[in-house]
């Protein structure tokens, strides 16, 4: 162990993709946009106006795109349940919102999700997973294991995307399900897709 290893700028993301491009630092190549770029298009097409987030490196590119998009309001949160309550207010006011978070943040949302279920407010949660695929940090594992069961226990429909090529299609379908049927839908984007943080 070295003190260098604790420096954030030395932490890198390893991805299983053949080209070994990090979704955090990569930019869309001319041939095919990355899945976060395509997700941004899905959010545009589905008229998502308020994009609330607690940062995760898996969402870094999407957050960057949202912050640069004048049609969307980027709303950084101090804790994830704020985004659940925000979704209620946005919907009452006639706008759509989406919540970007990592799996550990799902635990922070539990009681607030009761309001979503009781009021039948549409909610789309895009959850990047930590603690499940090649994880280094043991403290991430408990909430990773509890993510899907605790969402399900609060009446959230849970869908999983474990391959980069299926993320966009699953999120687009989840958004339609959430807003067409007025319920909460979470897409768990696997750590296999976003990559495990390397502590070296």
């Amino acid at each position: 162990m070295t003190t260098q290893s604790e420096k954030a700028d030395n932490m890198k993301i390893a991805t299983p993709e053949r080209k070994n491009r990090s979704p955090v630092t990569s930019h869309p190549s001319r041939s095919s946009p990355s899945w976060p770029d395509q997700l941004h298009r899905v959010l545009t097409d589905q008229r998502m106006r308020q994009v609330a987030y607690v940062p995760d490196s898996g969402h870094a590119r999407l957050i960057e795109l949202v912050r640069a998009d004048r049609q969307m309001r980027a709303i950084p949160l101090t804790t994830e349940e704020e985004g659940v309550a925000l979704a209620v207010g946005a919907w009452l006011g006639g706008e759509r919102s989406v919540l970007l978070l990592q799996s550990s943040g799902v635990g922070n949302c539990i009681n607030m999700l009761g309001m979503i279920q009781e009021c039948r407010v549409p909610l789309l949660m895009l959850v990047t997973m930590r603690g499940e695929w090649g994880e280094f940090n043991p403290w991430q594992v408990p909430m990773a294991q509890a993510t899907a069961p605790s969402l399900a226990a609060m009446g959230v429909v849970v869908q999983t995307a474990d391959r980069a090529e299926e993320v966009v299609e699953i999120v687009a379908a989840a958004g339609r399900l959430a807003f067409n049927t007025c319920r909460a839908v979470a897409v768990l984007i696997g750590q296999r897709v976003v990559g495990a943080k390397q502590f070296k």
Binding site: I75, E81, A85, V88, G89, L92, M112, G114, M115, E118
Partner: peptide, 22 residues
């Protein structure tokens, strides 16, 4: 009026989402 019967700690955020939408 939107009266909450739960979601303690969320009222200001409901107001924020609403204020941005309207």
């Amino acid at each position: 009026n939107f009266c909450t019967w739960g979601g303690m700690g969320g009222a200001a955020m409901i107001g924020l989402g609403m204020a941005l939408a309207q």
